[in-house]
Every structure is written in C-alpha cells, then in structure tokens.
Amino acid sequence: MKREHNGGITRRDLMIVGAATAATYAFPKVAYGQANVEAPASGEALKALDASLKSEVSFTVNGTARDIAVDNRTTLLDALRETLQLTGTKKGCDHGQCGACTVSVNGRRINSCLTLAVMHQDDEITSIEGLGTPDDLHPMQAAFIEHDGYQCGYCTPGQICSAKATLEEIRAGIPSHVTADITGPIEASDDEIRERMSGNICRCGAYSNILAAIKDVKGQNA
C-alpha cells in the first residue's frame, strides 16, 4: 500500500488526487491557448461572485421569443432541455462527439452542447420541436418513420435536424470530404449524404434506413 494525499509521494502522483479535489497550483498568468490557470475554487468566493456569473439572454426558439436568465455556464443544450424544458434535443455526450444535440441556429446546424446560451442573443434557434409535431410532421420526420430510420430514438432528433441541413448544404454547394471535384457542382450522392451525416452517431445502427429516408425527401424536393 502506498499512501497518498493531495499529491502523494511523488510529483507524478499529484494529479491522482489533485484533479478530483481543490488542489491549487501556482500557475503564472499565461496566454490564450496555453495551459490552464487556476480559478478561484472556494465556495465562499464563488458565492460572492454569484450575481456576476449569470446573464440574461433573449433569443427565438422555434419562432417563439424567449427571455431567460441563465448561469453563464449553461450551454444552449441545457437551456433548451432544462430551462425551457424542450427535451426533444438530446444530450448524448455533452462534448461534441455524438451529434444528438444538433439544432439549427440562424439556419446553420450546430452542436448545442458546445455553445453557451448566453452567446446566442437575438439568434433564431430551431430544434426538433420546431420542425413538426406528431400530428403535423415535417417531411423528413415522416420519412424517418416510413423507412424505420431509427431504433431507440435517442439520436433521432439530431439525425433529423442534420438530415434537413445536409440537403440544404448540398443545395448550397458546400463541399465535403467525399466531394470529388471541389470546384464543380455537387451531386447528392449516397456518399455525400453519408459523409455529411457522419457527425450524428446512431449506435442502434440505423444508418442505411436514415440514408433511405433522406433520399426519399430529396426526391420529393427534386
């Protein structure tokens, strides 16, 4: 047995406990992009600062104006899911690694988990709830049902938001990794759709069916 307490015996072991604790490191002030620096970590100090750590923000969600007070730390995803209780947008990883939180902001799809709510003043946000309802489905939602483009359903809202954006991005001529000629027009080929949908992970593996659904909607628009 080797005993450790906030740093342990060797420097190497420091972080074994340090990271889960309030261990403080005396880092010098460093430049943007460099190492982490220590924030005030005492509860009392934070309480004193509490008011300055919140902000008010106004934006439009699915056509409805919303004015909310948020903790500066609140992501757009958590503002939707927790503050506004619009839970159609999903949290799969909270780190931009799965795409379940995909929404549209000012007409462009983004990962809502990696953006702060406070950074969206005056923005227009569209989540899955804004595309359609069970009784009034968007064509992409209907196509996902028709082609069984899901299983558990958890990644589905993000897939649908991305699917809609994928067709829009192809129409807008934005190139992708699989675009053979980046100076020419872009065809909505299977691989173009697959590549552009690759930021939305479906662990149930409905990819083939999702592709079929997107192609179906593409055909309707053609």
Partner: peptide, 10 residues
C-alpha cells in the same frame, strides 16, 4: 411509437 420519436416527444 415513431411519431413521438421523430418529434422529440418520446
């Protein structure tokens, strides 16, 4: 359950 899943209401 499809309509609920695709609309984010499940």
């Amino acid at each position: 359950d499809g309509p609920l899943k695709v609309s984010g209401t499940a």
